[in-house]
């Protein structure tokens, strides 16, 4: 499905649920190298979006426009109905939380606990709320035992967890996680998936920038494929994995279960996880025996 088709099926016109709207956005780096070209896209309240693409496709540049760290060279980005040109990144950050790919860019405090408290105080939360939210974050991300450790002493995976914790602590409406699974073991990934589901139930908008297709696929997000600063495909997970041309352009591999069922010649709804796959295979085996 290409952009025109999406535009037809879901017109960008007045939609009260729209929280982010890019209109014809171009962005060039200060050295003149273009990083985004003609991006028009909209994100809705309560939506889960996966953005995929090769290194350098423009994924991180795109999401940095949402909290106003980057402003478009041409075109406009509106967040909650306001152009980011007129809003400071500091103000937007209260409602748009980004966890960057490299956690070292985000950590500077003396201890894990004060790292989390810092953001909350900065947004003017009162002491009681700071305490509650810090406890919640330390527990949710299993960081209690690290409370008094220096963030820079943590392993890469632990730093990433801390960054997730400190951003989610201030409860933003839009949550953007850039490569959240890097360095995370299976248990942490499972927790992250559960957390994404919890946040969705609270009607947050969640944008996951990730190469980890095996993590994204079971969540069945809306998928956006990027390459060379452009959006190649935008649709449901089931639609986008069928767009083989865009997939190979974006240097993305299909989920294993899509490969499996494609090879089996079964091109109906692709199973989201191993349980669905098992049920589907068993059903077909039974049907085959009965024939």
């Amino acid at each position: 499905m290409n952009l025109e088709q999406i535009a037809e099926s879901a017109p960008l016109s007045e939609n009260v649920d729209s929280v982010v709207r890019f209109t014809n956005v171009d962005y060039s780096h200060p050295n003149g190298v273009p990083a985004l070209r003609g991006i028009s896209v909209e994100f809705k309240k309560g939506e889960l979006v996966g953005i995929l693409g090769a290194n350098g496709a423009g994924k991180s540049t795109l999401v940095r426009h949402i909290n106003g760290i980057l402003k478009p060279t041409h075109g406009s980005v509106e967040v909650f109905g306001e152009s980011t040109k007129n809003t400071s990144a500091a103000k937007l950050s209260r409602r748009v939380g980004i966890v960057f790919q490299n956690p070292n860019n985000q950590l500077f405090a003396q201890s894990v606990k004060s790292e989390i408290e810092f953001g909350l105080r900065n947004f003017g939360f009162d002491d009681e709320l700071v305490r509650q939210r810090t406890d919640w974050a330390l527990n949710t991300f299993s960081l209690i035992e690290y409370s008094n450790r220096a963030p820079m002493e943590l392993s890469g995976g632990e730093k990433k967890r801390l960054c997730n914790a400190l951003v989610l602590a201030w409860d933003p409406d839009i949550v953007i996680l850039d490569e959240p699974t890097v360095g995370q073991d299976s248990e942490q990934k499972e927790r992250l998936a559960q957390l994404v589901k919890l946040l969705l139930s609270e009607q947050k908008t969640i944008i996951l920038v990730s190469h980890d297709m095996e993590f994204l696929w079971p969540l069945q997000p809306r998928m956006i494929l990027m390459s060379g600063g452009k959006i190649l495909a935008d649709g449901t997970a089931q639609q986008v994995v069928r767009d083989r041309v865009s997939f190979s352009h974006a240097n993305i591999l299909a989920p294993q279960l899509v490969e499996l069922f494609t090879e089996l010649g079964d091109l109906g709804r692709f199973p989201a996880d191993e349980f669905e796959a098992r049920d589907k295979i068993r059903l077909q085996m039974t049907a085959a025996k009965e024939k």
């Binding site: 083989r244 997939f247 190979s248 591999l253 299909a254 899509v258 490969e259 494609t262 090879e263 089996l264 010649g265 079964d266 091109l267 077909q284 085996m285 049907a287 085959a288």
Partner: peptide, 11 residues
């Protein structure tokens, strides 16, 4: 049921 499908993703 499982006809040999084309292995189109090439991976």
């Amino acid at each position: 049921v499982f006809q040999k499908g084309s292995h189109e993703f090439g991976t």
